[in-house]
Structures are given as structure tokens and as C-alpha cells.
């Protein structure tokens, strides 16, 4: 079953994994150069006092990754009319919808999980644990928003009512704006811990994204295809 789902986005998934790996390697080599040129002390101090650190767009790449996988998952369902069948599997509606959403999401989760472990190995060798907390918090926030983007895609791709699909798309754009305001790259932070309350707001955004997704599936199932 999982294998069948994977075929929906196999090529683009592998391509994006290669891209994320390249971004990760670039970050690792840049850090290595910085430590070689300036020393670990200066690397730590410049983080502490100048917020001199960047993920080199790895965080943006994570969001793009989740978004693209979601587009492939849900477009595939929508275009081939596959959804009409899967929504009528002999299970509860929530289980059917959950399966469609969760399959792709698990593949995204796997990449994020491996990435954060690798990043902790790479960055943890140089930065003090207080700094690692800031980095991990920012990354965790990034991953959670990646998941939300994935669910948002469901809200505007599956939704058959064009007006609502557009509204969901606009809310998604607003959420992206909000995300970058709360959790930009480290060097662009107004202050460390500026994203302290970020998870509360993402919780509210998650409520919207999940509601929009379930409403979209429900509308689709009812056959309101415009």
C-alpha cells in the first residue's frame, strides 16, 4: 500500500532528497571552512553576539520539499479521479482521509528526521548546547510548518469549490508570510527566542489547515465538483 502511494511522487521525492542532501553538505562544508579560518571560539561568539549563522536556505528547501510532495500526492488523487474510489473504501471517512494524507506525510517526516539528526551531529560538534537549542527550536518550527504546508495543499487542491480553494490558497500565503516573520533564518532574527510563541500560532494555523482539508474531502465526496 505504502509502495503504491510512493509511486505517486517517487521521482520528485528522490530529486528533492538529493537537493536537500546537497544543501546539507554545503552547510557542513561552510561550517568546516569557518571553523578552519576563524576557529570554533569565534564561530560560537559570532553566533552569540552577532547572530552570524545561516541555514543557507536549507529551511526554505524543507518547505519546498513538503509543498511539492503534497502537490504530487493530491494532484494525483484529483486528476485521475482516484480519490472517488479511495474515499469509498470500507473504512470510516476519517481513516480514509487520514491514510491519503498520512502516507505522503510520513515520507516527508522521514527526511526531516534524518536531516535533524545529521544537523545535530554536524552543528553539535562546533556549537555549545545553548546555541544548539536555538537551532533545534528553529528547525523544529520549520518542520512543523512544512507539515502544515503539506496539509494546506490538500485544502486547495482537493477542494472542489473554486472560491474556497482560492481562500485556502490565500490563507496559506498569509501563513507563509507569518511564518517568515516569526521564524526567519537565524541572522534575520530580531532577537533570539523571537519565535517563542510560534508553536501556539502554528497550532491555530494547523486547526485551519486540518479543517480546510477535511471540509475539502467532505465536499469532494458529496460530489460538488464545479
Amino acid at each position: 500500500m505504502f509502495k503504491k502511494e510512493f509511486y505517486k511522487f517517487k521521482d520528485v521525492y528522490l530529486l528533492l532528497v538529493v537537493l536537500i542532501t546537497s544543501f546539507l553538505a554545503y552547510l557542513a562544508f561552510s561550517l568546516k571552512n569557518m571553523v578552519q579560518n576563524f576557529g570554533a571560539l569565534d564561530t560560537n561568539l559570532s553566533f552569540l553576539f552577532k547572530k552570524k549563522f545561516t541555514f543557507f536556505h536549507l529551511d526554505d528547501m524543507n518547505l519546498v520539499f513538503a509543498f511539492v510532495i503534497a502537490v504530487f500526492v493530491f494532484f494525483h488523487e484529483r486528476i485521475n479521479g482516484r480519490l472517488r474510489l479511495s474515499l469509498h473504501f470500507p473504512h470510516s471517512s476519517a481513516r480514509n482521509i487520514g491514510f491519503i494524507i498520512m502516507c505522503g506525510l510520513l515520507f516527508v517526516f522521514f527526511v526531516y528526521f534524518v536531516e535533524i539528526i545529521l544537523l545535530n551531529i554536524i552543528l553539535g560538534a562546533v556549537y555549545a548546547k545553548e546555541i544548539m537549542y536555538v537551532l533545534n527550536y528553529s528547525l523544529a518550527f520549520n518542520y512543523v510548518f512544512g507539515f502544515l504546508l503539506y496539509i494546506f495543499c490538500c485544502g486547495f487542491i482537493i477542494e472542489p469549490v473554486k472560491k474556497r480553494a482560492i481562500v485556502n490558497f490565500i490563507v496559506m500565503l498569509g501563513s507563509i508570510y507569518l511564518y517568515y516573520e516569526i521564524n526567519p533564518d537565524i541572522y534575520a532574527f530580531d532577537s533570539f527566542y523571537a519565535n517563542d510563541f510560534g508553536f501556539y500560532y502554528m497550532g491555530i494555523v494547523a486547526l485551519y489547515a486540518l479543517s480546510a482539508a477535511f471540509i475539502a474531502f467532505d465536499n469532494y465526496k458529496r460530489g460538488y465538483i464545479k
Binding site: 481562500v167 498569509g174 491555530i204 486547526l207 485551519y208 479543517s211 480546510a212 471540509i215 467532505d218
Partner: peptide, 20 residues
């Protein structure tokens, strides 16, 4: 589904109160 619709609607109002 009704609860979901209320949540959807409520968050959208907050969204407007933030961005408008």
C-alpha cells in the same frame, strides 16, 4: 463537520484581523 466549519470560520476571521 459542523465543529470543523466553526473552527475554519473562526481562524479565518483571526486571519483577517491580522492582515487587513
Amino acid at each position: 463537520m459542523k465543529i470543523l466549519k466553526i473552527v475554519y470560520f473562526g481562524v479565518f476571521i483571526l486571519f483577517l484581523a491580522l492582515f487587513l
